[in-house]
Computed example of a mutant assay.
Amino acid sequence: MNFDLSDYYKQIIFSVLTILLGTLVKFIAQKIVNSFSHISHKADKRKNMIIKYIDILIYIIFGTIILLIWGVDTGRVMTSLTSILAFIGVALFAQWSILSNITAGIIMFFSFPYKIGDRIKIQDKDFPTEAEIIDIKAFHTILVTEEGEKISFPNNLFLQKSIVILEEV
């Protein structure tokens, strides 16, 4: 069997171009998130979390494009990937909760009217809560009450509950 590199020039060139384009898209996405974070005074930890999620999405998209360039049967790859994700979802049993909290965390980054340091009141008929936001993470927001209690509040509930800003920073 004779191996000739010239048979793969087209795939190599398209792969290099795809990697360069992916790097450019990643750079532009990071600049947009950094600009938005600076304008809206978002915390660096939240900005870094959003950048990490966007990077993962870019890697998946451009990795799939490279697989297509090299003629890999993406149907089989996707079937394997979805099987693995389904197994992980069943194993963790709370996949929907995790995904809803991650999605809520991303939504909160771009359109959340509250920021770290704000005093808020969560309008909940069973457990109304007044507290200060001390951190906003990927899955939950950390609150501290006047009594010093730390509360971990799931991000998806922040989008479902009515919240009053008592004191803005």
Rank of each mutant, 00 (worst) to 15 (best):
F3I: 15
F3E: 05
L5Q: 09
S6P: 04
D7E: 11
D7N: 14
D7Y: 08
Y9C: 08
I13T: 11
F14S: 06
F14T: 03
S15M: 09
S15G: 15
V16L: 15
T18L: 12
L20I: 13
L20K: 05
L20P: 03
L21P: 05
L24W: 09
V25P: 03
V25I: 15
V25R: 09
A29W: 09
Q30G: 14
K31N: 12
V33R: 10
V33F: 11
N34T: 13
S35P: 02
H38R: 13
I39M: 07
S40I: 03
S40D: 07
H41C: 04
K42N: 05
A43W: 00
A43V: 03
D44K: 13
D44L: 10
R46M: 12
R46S: 09
R46L: 08
K47T: 15
N48Q: 14
N48L: 15
M49E: 10
M49S: 10
I50K: 07
I51A: 12
Y53L: 13
Y53Q: 10
I54M: 12
D55H: 13
D55A: 14
D55E: 14
I58R: 10
I61G: 11
I61T: 15
F62D: 11
T64V: 06
T64Q: 09
T64P: 02
T64L: 12
L67R: 02
L67T: 08
G71S: 06
V72M: 11
T74W: 09
G75L: 06
T79G: 14
T79L: 15
T79H: 04
S80V: 08
L81G: 11
T82C: 09
S83A: 15
S83M: 13
I84G: 07
A86R: 05
F87V: 10
I88Y: 10
F93C: 10
F93G: 09
F93W: 12
F93T: 15
Q95S: 11
S97D: 14
I98N: 09
S100H: 05
I102D: 07
T103H: 13
T103N: 15
T103W: 13
G105K: 03
I106V: 15
M108V: 07
M108F: 14
M108W: 04
M108E: 06
F109R: 07
F109W: 08
F110Q: 07
S111K: 13
P113N: 03
P113M: 02
P113S: 02
Y114R: 02
D118F: 00
R119G: 01
Q123W: 02
D124S: 14
D126M: 07
D126C: 03
P128D: 08
T129Q: 02
T129F: 02
E130R: 01
A131N: 04
A131K: 01
E132K: 00
D135R: 00
I136T: 02
K137D: 04
A138V: 12
F139S: 04
H140I: 05
T141V: 07
I142V: 06
I142Q: 00
I142Y: 00
L143V: 01
T145L: 08
T145K: 07
E146F: 03
E147Y: 04
G148M: 03
I151N: 01
S152T: 01
S152V: 01
S152M: 08
P154G: 06
N155P: 06
N156G: 04
L157R: 10
F158Y: 02
L159H: 05
K161M: 05
V164F: 04
V164P: 00
E167M: 07
V169N: 03
